[in-house]
Design a binder for these strands. Structure first.
Ligand code: ZN
Ligand code: ZN
Ligand code: ZN
Ligand code: ZN
Lengths: 132, 132
DNA sequence: GCAATTGATGTAATAACATTACATTAAGGA
DNA sequence: TCCTTAATGTAATGTTATTACATCAATTGC
């Protein structure tokens, strides 16, 4: 699932996210890329879909927005569970990959014979900088 | 935050969710309540907002949908962290409230001076019934 | 009881997020 | 080259959520 090389659209979307200070919605990305020839939402959504598959972009479900991965964790087929801490004030997102959480959730799921395909963990709150 | 008594709209929305076999979107609820006088999305969203505050309805972020609470946990001001196991096949949602998860996430947050306001944990997958 | 306040409701319009459908083009392999 | 697959362009549409404003109901203070 690791990409050999990104397509032009994928590279542009990734670059936009990488330079952003906070999660971006698909439409915000679209607006930022109009100068580069983007005209329609689908151009963004298609790139995001691939980048997310590759594991180098994450979707934040509680925000309907996307961030570039800052935490080069396991990009392989068996993706690690990632918890996101999202600051409501500055938009900073930190990624936490913790085996204990992962194991515990796995145990709880197994206990009720639930086969987990994808796990979302998002903490909304205030980061250290914004709390000070 | 516990309600003394639900308003008519709140009661109707809650009843709809209670009788549903799977999470419902706001617009699905709206359609089901047209016979009872509902005409506009806001009637549903306003009721959902209150019911969610009361802790008797939960919003599933990864689904943009809502479920009635089935797990009479802490409805007080300090809400417990709840993990949801959501079956992609039958829509069944089970609620898991686990202190270990809660403590671990709390520790990880504190470690980076993050003040958590709200935590979302959602596992998407296949329940025991649908795996068999 | 009655004014003042607060919370809930009704309605329309619009904003924000995401997908379907279909035509076209680019890339890679037999 | 021919065939297949992946990516792209574009328009239209579908889905989810909010803003704005008028009205109505319940509660409180007098
Ligand atoms: Zn990451
Ligand atoms: Zn911050
Ligand atoms: Zn619950
Ligand atoms: Zn199931």
């Amino acid at each position: 699932m690791e990409p050999r090389k990104l397509t032009r659209n994928q590279a542009l979307v990734l670059e936009t996210l990488t330079h952003a200070e906070a999660p971006l919605s698909a439409y915000t990305i679209l607006d930022k890329l109009r100068d580069h020839g983007f005209r329609a939402p689908l151009q963004v959504y298609r790139a995001l879909e691939k980048l997310t598959e590759f594991g180098i972009v994450h979707r934040l479900e509680s925000l309907n927005a996307f961030v570039a991965c800052t935490h080069p964790h396991d990009h392989g087929p068996e993706k690690a569970v990632i918890a996101f801490a999202i600051c409501e004030d500055c938009g900073q997102v930190s990624e936490i990959s913790d085996p204990e959480i992962e194991d515990r959730l796995s145990l709880l799921a197994t206990k009720q014979q639930f086969r987990t395909e994808k796990t979302t963990i998002e903490m909304r709150g205030h980061c250290g900088n914004c709390t000070a």
